[in-house]
Computed example of a mutant assay.
Amino acid sequence: MNAVFGVLFHFIGGFASGSFYVPYKKVKGWSWETMWILGGLFSWIIIPPVAAMLTIPNFMDIIKGSSNSIIGYTFLFGLLWGIGGLTYGLGVRYLGVSLGSSIILGLSMVFGSLMPSIYYFIYPTTGKHGIDYFFTSNAGLCILLGLALCVLGVYLCGKAGVSKERHLASFSKTGSSDYNFGLGITVAIISGILSACFNFGIEAGKPMADVANVLWKANHPEQGEFLYQNNVTYIVILWGGFTTNFLWCLYLLLKNKTFSEYTKKEVPKMRNLLLCALAGTTWYLQFFFYGMGESRLGNGASSWILHMAFIILISNAWGILLKEWKGVDRVTHRSIIAGIITIILSICVVGFAKTLEN
C-alpha cells in the first residue's frame, strides 16, 4: 500500500504544480513581476512555515539545532533552483512553450533523479542508493525503464509542440520573432540542470527531516514514517528560492517602474491579491504532497521521476482540455496523445518498481 499511496500523493502534487498558474491568468492590470513576487511571498515565505507549524510544532528548534553546513547547502541548492526557475521563462521564450518546457522538465527529471545516486556511489551513505543500484537490482532496472519511457513521452510531447508551433506560424507572415534555437537550447540546458537542485536541496536538508521523523515516531510508535517530515526542509530551500526570485523581481520592478501598479485605482487590488495568494498556495502544495509521497516511496529516483512525470502529464492534459491543440493536424494530435499515454505508462512502471524492493 505504501507504493499506491506514494503514487497518489505524487499525483496530487503534480496536479497542483501543473495547475498553479491558472489563477495568475485571471490577474488584471499587473505585470508579471508585480504578481509573481506577491504570489511568491505566499509560496516561499508565508505558507511553508504555516504548514510546518501545523505539522511540526517544534520546526524552528530543528532548524536552529542543525549545523551551518546543513543549512548552508540546503539554502544554496534552493538558490540555484531559483535561478533554474527564472531561466525557465527564457527557455520557453526562445524555444516556444512546448519544446522549451519539454526539454527543461526532461533534463530536470533526469538530473534530479540520477545525480544524487552518483554522489552516494562516490560517498556511500546508509539508506541511500548509489548509481550501481540501477544496474544490479530488479527494482533499479525497472526504475531506469520507467525513466526511459518518461523521456520518450517528453520527446513525443515536445515533437507535437514543435509541430504545433510550425503549424501556427504558417498562418503568420512573420512567425515568432523571439525564436532562437541556439540561445534557447543553451538556456534550457542551464534551467533543466539547475531546476533539479530542488531535489538536491531535499537531500542536503534530509538530516532536518530525519529529526522531525524521529520525534514524531517517538510519540507515534509502530505507525510508519512521518508523512510531513520534509516540511521543515522546505522552509530553508524556499528561503534560497525566494532570494533569487525577489532580487530579480525587484530589479524588474525598478527597471520597468511597475511599483505603481500596486496602487492603481482602476486595478481590482483585492481580487488580484486573492488570485496571487491562491496561485502561490497551490504552487506550494506540490511540494507539500511531494513530501508525503517521498515518505512512502523514499527520496530516491522514484519520487523525483513520478513528481516530474505528473507535472508534465497534467500540464499537457490541461492543454488538451483548454483546447490549446485545437486546429492542429492529425499527426500532431496523435503525437501529443502518444506522449501522454507513454508518460502514464512510465508512472505505472516506476510505481511498480517500488514493490520489487520489498
Rank of each mutant, 00 (worst) to 15 (best):
M1F: 07
G6P: 02
L8Y: 15
L8A: 15
F15N: 06
G18T: 06
V22Y: 04
K25G: 13
K26N: 10
K28I: 03
G29R: 01
G29Y: 03
G39L: 00
W44P: 05
I46A: 10
V50S: 10
P57G: 07
I62E: 11
G65A: 15
S66L: 10
Y73G: 07
L76P: 12
L80F: 12
G82L: 05
G91E: 07
V92C: 06
V97A: 13
G100N: 00
L105Q: 10
S113H: 12
M115I: 15
I118H: 09
Y120T: 08
T126H: 08
K128L: 06
I131V: 14
I131A: 10
F134V: 02
N138Q: 13
A139C: 10
A139F: 04
C142L: 13
I143D: 12
L145M: 09
L147T: 01
C150M: 13
C150K: 05
V151I: 15
G158H: 04
V162D: 12
S163E: 15
A169Y: 02
S170W: 03
S176G: 07
D178M: 09
G182Q: 06
A196F: 06
G201K: 03
G205T: 00
V214D: 10
A218P: 10
L227M: 15
L227D: 14
N230F: 13
T233C: 11
T233W: 10
G240F: 00
G241I: 01
K257Y: 01
K265G: 05
M270S: 14
L275H: 10
Y284D: 11
F287G: 09
F289Q: 02
F289M: 08
L297D: 06
S303L: 06
I305G: 11
F310A: 13
F310P: 09
I320G: 08
D329L: 04
T332L: 07
S335D: 14
I341W: 07
I344N: 04
S346K: 02
G351R: 08
K354W: 09
K354V: 00
L356G: 01
